[in-house]
Amino acid sequence: MTRISETALEALGEIPDGSTVMIGGFGSAGQPVELIDALVEAGPTGLTVVSNNAGNGDLGLAHLVELGRIRKIVCSFPRQADSWHFDAKYRAGEIELELVPQGNLAERIRAAGAGIGAFYTPTGYGTPLAEGKETREIDGKNYVLEYPIHADVALVKAHRADTAGNLVYRKTARNFGPIMAAAARRTVVQVSEVVPAGSIDPEAVVTPGIYVDTVVAVGGSTALRQGTGEATWQEVAG
């Protein structure tokens, strides 16, 4: 059952020190900035963060990096023109980096959510990023064995949720949202608006509510849509 929370901090719930946290987004697109701000406020340290990038500019993930809350980051593309907070921590030896090709990162996250024990992928074979990994030739082609990435909690940004936790996304901001939602033991989603169950066409649902534990509306559209009167801002059945 999906809970609807009133604030990002309440939605975030308890995140102990040393937790593994998946954070959606490709650069700024789809980055759950309000949930990350809540994570900063909540204060856990020694985190392992799984995210495509390692923060851009000064906000969101970059701020979490700047504050030194992250012990290790698992990502595909940390270094960018505006990744100065990560760059400084990395050069100072204050953050551990596990560099993963983007498609392997996505598939390892997907595998975790799908209950797959490990998989063989051609990506990275014969490169430094496959050093020390098990390989196998299958039908004349070489593959690398990769393992799933699980997480304690996933922080995801979607566009709209209904009170059953079903999600739709917006354009390329979808990126890692659906697979992270499935991969983590607990998934917290920020959306622009929460609408009554039944307001999203079941054929159009991208992430079914089974993967979503808590939803919070952030930004300018926190009011429920008018009309049915059946949903409220209270928690929905716990």
Binding site: P78, R79, L99, P101, Q102, G103, P122
Partner: peptide, 15 residues
């Protein structure tokens, strides 16, 4: 001394 970043390069190369 470079900070490594790979993105989708390896996936694109072989896919």
């Amino acid at each position: 001394d470079a900070i490594p970043a790979v993105g989708g390069a390896m996936d694109l190369a072989v896919g």
